[in-house]
Amino acid sequence: MLSIGEFSKICKVSTKTLRYYDEIGLIHPEDINPENGYRYYSIRQLKEMLLINRLKSYHFSLEEIKTMINVEENQAEEKLIFGLQRKRKEVQAKIHAYEYTLTQLNQDILRADMGKSMMSWLDDIEVELSETQPMNILYIRQMMSSDDYALGYEKYFSRLYERIAVNKLTLLGTPMTIYHSPEYNPAGNDTEFAIPIEETVRETRYLHGSLCAKSVLKGPYAELTSVYAKLREWVDDEGYDLAQSPYEVYVTDHQQAGVPEDIVTEVYFPIKKKER
């Protein structure tokens, strides 16, 4: 058996932390002397503590680690592998995000070295006129707070795809989001999730075709704000007014894209000529 001090020294974990781990049920001493309260750990617990340290280095929370290691022995390996695979995806996503940020920084520095404005990259966003065709859409319309969006997209599109599968409906296009609120409100925005289908059933509606200012974003969704700004500027410069709510069409599924730069999103601003 190892005293708490020796165990602490080997594993590079303070005795205060070991007592805390005991309190939260992460790792308990093998034995506690009832007379003096001294804590002792077994040799086999060294591996357990090293595993905890390893998982902490992967940025798992203590609660996540507890869930992963405090399971039935026949489930332990499966639970651990599942957790590691999920964490790998999170780390890869962060790496891609930093790589994209680094690319943007390098581009901004290059523009500055060439004597260009940092915001000159907006000039690279192309806008074109597009005549869209009418379509029948299966939809869910929902008030969405700023905190809802990340999970909301997956939630509501999944529901729509489930209805399409259950009712054997004919898919005619990729998912789209229509933004109906006249202004952005972090507390709630009128958002419509839709998928074009052939059949007219309950919870479908007709989306009219129209003349649109269109731009295509190839990159992460975080860049959509720039596309919206460019489109709005173009609409005003070309003598148009917005006619209906703007919408996005997700040409590629972000889960299928290898890196964020592979994501393709079309943005449409339905427009009409300004009244003189």
Rank of each mutant, 00 (worst) to 15 (best):
R44N: 10
Y228S: 11
R39A: 05
T101S: 03
V166G: 15
Y179Q: 00
L122T: 00
I263K: 06
Y221G: 14
T191A: 14
C212H: 00
K12I: 02
S215Q: 06
Q133G: 09
H254C: 07
Q133L: 07
S120T: 08
G209I: 02
L26K: 10
A76T: 08
E203A: 15
E90N: 15
G152H: 00
I43Q: 09
Q244W: 00
P270S: 10
R202C: 08
L102F: 01
I109Q: 01
A243M: 01
I137G: 14
D253M: 04
D262Y: 07
E183P: 05
E48Y: 08
D241N: 12
G115M: 04
M1S: 15
T252W: 11
G188T: 13
L242A: 01
S210C: 09
E162C: 08
Y161M: 12
K214I: 09
A112Q: 02
L211A: 01
R205H: 07
I27C: 01
S117F: 07
L18M: 13
A243C: 03
L138N: 05
T101V: 06
E203G: 15
A243S: 05
D123W: 06
D123P: 12
S226M: 06
K218L: 04
P260D: 11
T225K: 06
S61N: 05
N189G: 00
T15G: 01
N74E: 12
L2K: 09
S181C: 02
H96D: 08
W234H: 11
E238A: 06
Y58F: 14
N74K: 12
S145M: 05
T17K: 05
T132K: 06
E192P: 03
L211H: 03
I27N: 01
L105K: 02
E48I: 12
K9M: 06
I178K: 00
A97H: 10
V216P: 14
M119V: 04
I95M: 11
Y228T: 14
L242P: 00
V235W: 11
D124N: 05
L172I: 15
Y40R: 14
M143E: 12
Y268Q: 07
S158N: 13
L46W: 07
A257L: 09
E30N: 08
D31G: 06
I32E: 12
L105E: 00
L105Q: 01
Y228I: 10
C212V: 03
Y100I: 02
K9E: 04
C11N: 11
L217I: 10
K214V: 11
F157I: 13
K66P: 06
L26E: 13
E90R: 14
P196F: 07
N36M: 06
Q256C: 14
E192M: 04
T15C: 01
K273T: 02
G219L: 14
R159E: 14
P270A: 07
E90W: 11
M68Q: 11
